[in-house]
Design a protein around this nucleic acid. Structure first.
Lengths: 219, 219, 219, 219
DNA sequence: GATGAATGAGTCTTCATTCAT
DNA sequence: TATGAATGAAGACTCATTCAT
């Protein structure tokens, strides 16, 4: 594992636990096993470190989202696949997703603009699917904006309570959420077999792990 | 308006915008129009200030929740009323609710324990209603825990995006969320006329406001 | 007991325990049962409070010292009586004497000058007696200054370790110290019956006490 | 001279002049020629700085005391050598000794316990010698505790008034004090030639000096 | 006579960052 | 590549003091 990854993991763990502002650069260094000055060499500073983490997290959500939309044009299937993708990503990388979700306000200038833009891109995927589902009559939605926001909050929440060593497997969690999402938008329940090819879920290099399993990605 | 209220409003505004850890005591004082030392006279310190705000916020959620459960024993009605109450409280006091939702980890010791206990109390209201609805067959829930968490996340989210001066009135927002909640748990759609007496929504004294309208409470 | 006395006692107790600089005006007020602002009315401020205490303490030492020197012109008797007087004063008012001994450097300007002058006055009593004892041949002193300083340190020390409820009565303590002093200056041992009329030992109003016994003085 | 030494000297000078509580960390930094934050890098904080100084001072007193007791078993000689050692240490490092003597109460927790234990160790050396001298009949002491305390106060006092550039050399000062001590305990006068090998007197690195002379020690 | 309110200056300490090595 | 040293700015908090009531 590279030094930057080591640093990102340490940072994600601490940022998730205490928040960006309450975490010291020295503490990150200590957890990563590096001098805090070394950290500047690899990560470029505290805010750059956070921005890198969030780019990673949102980048993966975007990639998985695009993969989700690809195979089918059916809004119900697309929504189900979006939920599959997001839930799995959040479940497999909860701390990175927590940080990505909560610390946007800590960014400034270009970093802030870039991350907000990525987030907006991601949310617009849901928006467009919901819109098309309404137009085709597959969805029964009273208020598009409210539905989208409720749906997103619900899915984002996974990162904050799901524990991989708990009762539910990721696959089970996905099934539960697809069901909830279908109900929320008033669509028919989309089954797993309808959903087409499985979506790759990436185990992010920024996510702190005991041991080192799963599909690893350096992005 | 008392000095403590002035301080709490300033603090809530800043905590919501930048987070507790990223907000300086001097800055709160500046916004409140007081010397930072005076703030200690009224609020007792930064953490005490936060704890006071969160006590206010959770206290009101608990109160409104109890009022919601009272008139009917029907789980569907109780759930609808819980959602009515929470959505309205969040919509009317969004910043206080944001802070209450996000800054628990900044508390320590007894403050932390107390607030966590209040939050658990509140969440158990939803849990109990969902359980009873499942037993009576009014709800069709695949996974109780997942449903509860999804529901709560969805409702908590309101504080983060609802704007009182926007397209939707609070009443409309409530209707949308009752519909979403009913769908989520697989119950019949509970109409407003079924819901019984209106639930008082308190405008918290800790909530920053332009002007000063609404039912005000010092609790 | 007057309010000023109450304040002085509280202050002496705290100054002795933690030192002047480490003691807060509010804490003194709390111990005295008064608001810290009220303290300004009676004592005029923190430094004035200390100066008052030290004036009291040194004033009493000076008074007792003069009383000691009066009845006899014999240097040996005079020295014995000076020791009797000082030891008793320190034993009966240990905390006031500790503060008087140690906190001179906390004073400024006129207060400082005045207290230093009083202390010098007091020490010069010993100096003069030792000088005369040398001239008359009653004392065998190798180095006058060293002897005086050693003698004074020795006597001042009483305030720091003597406990009235301990093994030794004040009278016994006096006897021990007279013996030590006589040895130190190489004089014959002066017996109690030689010492003439007893010296009044004042129980200072600035000394914290449980209950309220002894000859009390307001000076 | 190392930075830590620089800091300790500055601190000792200021602590001796104004007291620990009345000395600011910034002021120490200014005198030491360092930013106050740098001070934390080397000394770890204000209390740690004091504790380090006192460890140095008491450590040296203990070492010299042990060296004093070694060569002879004769209580009179041992006492004389203890006095030689202490007087020289105090005369050569007066400010460090002042601080060590007076600021114990500023320490807390483990630091306090450790320093008090060292001081008790040191005082017990005197106690044991006095005890043995009484048993062997070499000393004529009416009250052991009083004699020990008087002796110690007398010797401690040296740090507060001896000036190396004054009338007396350290050796002369030692002779005067050995004489006083012998008188105090009623022993024969122990001469220098009886005292055996000279005791090393260490010039502490924490002691502020103009120029930089003498046997220097980093301990 | 007595006090709660108020504050500017001060406290110790930690911060993110830079830089010479 | 890696780090100990160094610092100005800022952190939360306490201070002695004044004053209107």
């Amino acid at each position: 594992m590279s030094n930057l990854e080591q640093i990102q993991r340490a940072a994600v763990g601490l940022f998730a636990e205490r928040g960006f502002a309450a975490t010291g650069i020295r503490e990150i260094g200590r957890v990563a096993g590096l001098n805090s000055a070394t950290l500047y060499h690899y990560a470029g500073g505290k805010e750059e470190l956070l921005a890198g983490i969030m780019r990673t997290g949102l980048g993966e959500l975007l990639r998985a989202g695009r993969e989700a939309l690809e195979p089918s044009a059916d809004p119900a299937v697309q929504l189900a696949r979006l939920v599959l993708a997001q839930v799995a990503t959040e479940a497999v990388n909860p701390l990175t997703c927590q940080v990505t979700d909560r610390e946007v306000r800590a960014l400034t200038g270009d970093n802030h603009a870039e991350i907000v833009a990525m987030r907006d891109d991601y949310e617009s995927m849901f928006q467009r699917v919901l819109e098309r589902g309404m137009r085709t009559g597959e969805f029964q939605i009273t208020d598009l904006r409210v539905a989208r926001l409720a749906l997103l909050e619900m899915c984002n929440g996974v990162a904050f309570w799901y524990r991989p060593d708990g009762r539910l497997s990721v696959a089970q969690l996905q099934d539960r959420f697809v069901e909830l999402a279908c109900r929320l938008v008033g669509s028919r329940l989309v089954g797993r077999q309808e959903c087409g090819p499985e979506i790759v879920t990436v185990s992010l290099s920024s996510e702190p792990r005991d041991g080192n399993v799963g599909v690893e990605a350096s992005a």
